[in-house]
Design a protein around this nucleic acid. Structure first.
Length: 496
RNA sequence: GGCUCUUUGGUCAAGCGGCUAAGACGCCGCCCUCUCACGGCGGAAACACGAGUUCGAUUCUCGUAAGAGUCACCA
């Protein structure tokens, strides 16, 4: 039994999309769940698509998600180089071997001729297939053309009849008629291989046992088998995955402006949450559980759980899951994570103690980090608000009750030099206010709601009245109470 | 158009001949509560359609429909 080896083979486009990342994850998990190796290979045979810095995006994404490769660029394992553009000579050698064996042939057709064929075919409404013009060129003519230095490609010689069947671990057996297969190009005129050829050669040379990829390759897989057979190589296990969709009709893609892995991270999603979520998009574990660390995924992953139909990327569920990750995080870790966001809003007022208090108040209330500024902006500056938010039926408050309550607060709090000197402590203040309410025949809510409202200018806040007062401090709290009284008086005056 | 694949609630999905057809997100209601959130409890919501096979089909077969992929010197 060969050791399981999988590979992630991205072409460096500078954009790691979620679908690619999931493929990498599955490849990694298949290898690791079977004690095997996971390799990274860069498929850059299309020189026209070269993008500066694209490799770093690949490296950084894998690093951020903890998907570590055992072999690949910068990590020799005896199968290198792992960058296809550096393997040029290898492909040529194998292409020639195929010609030798009669499974491939030189083709000298010009692009112009090919274009002509294509438009003819389009006019007929059928797909394009090479007309095999060069398939049976006499040996001496081939030699003449070669000697004359004519540009050429090498094409795969497909059987003209019969069928080819391959087995996919997800989709089962699939059979196609050989006559529908195109004599595809293996080696391009620039000497570089096409994806289809490079893949087969490299996967074999690198000992890949499981080929995992998008199901858009399903229809070209019979050609792969024919290639493996022509070489006499062992055929790998195919694992084709259905795509991740943006909606019912569109794949997640850069062109659609969909978020890449790092776009999501920038928005405040945690790499572990993203990874956990996408693992579940198109795969379902045998246990009824949906929270998995990478390690746990390695233990639970199984090819049989991969689904055949496309899945729509649901940002809502990712957000929820991200929130769960935040809530499950230990407090210190979260404080550290949230600190930059909080400090940015509070600027110079952000003492470590304050940041800590605020962070813990926010922790159960956000799903993604980027929600923080909106949640706490009112602490830096009291928003302009309408006095209508003082009205709350269930809390038994309205503008009149609130005005009365705020005045009461202003007076009684103003008479407490200890509060003024030491600042508020939420719990103490809470007890004090409840006592105050009882003393004046008010419900707690008739004091607390107006206070919270005055101090925040918002109908909903992270934290209750006394928690906010503690964070704002005595002076600012009193200032805001005063501000509230003014607003309510103005409102009363204009209302009458 | 040819070939290939797919089809369980709005979404992710379990199911692999017999179930009141799981669970999760979202939504709604109630509870908790110094607002909101968290948490707890409960609810609405699905087998694309039509034939077969079978004592019995979500599950097997064949059609139909609707989607998707592919048909490049791109991967």
């Amino acid at each position: 039994m060969n050791k399981t080896r999988t590979r992630f083979a991205p072409s460096p486009t500078g954009y790691m999309h979620i679908g690619n990342l999931r493929t990498a994850l599955y490849e990694y998990l298949i290898a690791k769940s079977q004690g095997g190796d996971f390799l990274l290979r860069i498929e850059d045979t299309d020189q026209e698509r070269y993008v500066e810095g694209a490799l770093d995006v690949v490296f950084n994404t894998l690093k951020a998600t903890g998907i570590e490769y055992d072999e690949g660029p910068g990590k020799e394992g005896g199968c290198g180089p792992y960058i296809q553009s550096q393997r040029r000579d290898i492909y040529k050698k194998y292409a020639l071997e195929l010609v030798e064996k009669g499974a491939a042939y030189y083709c000298f057709c010009t692009r112009e001729r090919l274009m002509g064929l294509k438009t003819d075919d389009d006019a007929l409404g059928t797909g394009f297939n090479y007309d095999r013009h060069c398939r049976d060129l006499p040996a001496d003519e081939v030699k003449r053309n070669l000697d004359a230095g004519l540009p050429y490609v090498i094409r795969q010689k497909m059987p003209l009849s019969g069928t080819t069947t391959f087995t996919d671990a997800v989709y089962g057996d699939i059979t196609v008629e050989n006559k529908t297969l195109d004599d595809q190009v293996l080696l391009k005129s620039d000497g570089l291989p096409t994806y289809n050829f490079a893949n087969v050669v490299d996967d074999h040379l690198m000992g890949i046992t499981h080929v995992v990829r998008g199901n858009e390759y399903l229809s070209s897989t019979p050609k792969y088998n024919l290639l493996y057979e022509a070489f006499g190589w062992e055929i790998p296990v195919y694992v084709h995955c259905a795509p991740i969709m943006k909606d019912e009709h569109h794949k997640l893609s850069k062109r659609n402006g969909d978020a890449s892995f790092f776009d999501l991270v920038d928005k405040g999603y945690l790499p572990e949450a993203i990874l956990n979520y996408i693992a579940l998009l198109g795969w379902s574990p045998s246990v009824n559980e949906e929270f998995f660390t990478l390690k746990e995924l390695e233990q639970n992953f199984s090819i049989s759980g991969i689904s055949r139909s496309p899945s729509i990327f649901d940002i809502e569920k990712l957000s929820w899951m991200n929130g769960e990750y935040i809530r499950r995080m230990d407090d210190d870790a979260f404080v550290k994570l949230a600190e930059p966001c909080i400090s940015a809003v509070l600027t110079d007022k952000a003492t470590p103690a304050l940041v800590q208090k605020l962070a813990l108040l926010i922790k159960p209330r956000i799903n993604i980090l980027s929600e923080i500024p909106d949640k706490i902006g009112f602490l830096a500056e009291l928003p302009d608000y309408s006095t209508e938010i003082y009205v709350h039926k269930k809390m038994k408050t309205d503008e009149a009750v609130s005005l009365e309550a705020l005045k009461l607060l202003s007076d009684s709090l103003g008479e407490r030099p200890d509060f003024a000197q030491d600042g508020f402590v939420s719990q103490e203040l809470y007890e004090y206010l409840c006592g105050l309410a009882a003393e004046h025949g008010l419900k707690n809510s008739q004091i607390l709601w107006p206070l919270r409202t005055a101090v925040s200018g918002l109908a909903a806040t992270p934290g209750g009245a006394t928690e906010l007062a503690e964070i704002l401090g005595y002076d600012e709290t009193m200032r805001r109470i005063g501000d509230g009284i003014r607003r309510l008086e103005e409102s009363a005056a204009s209302g009458n």
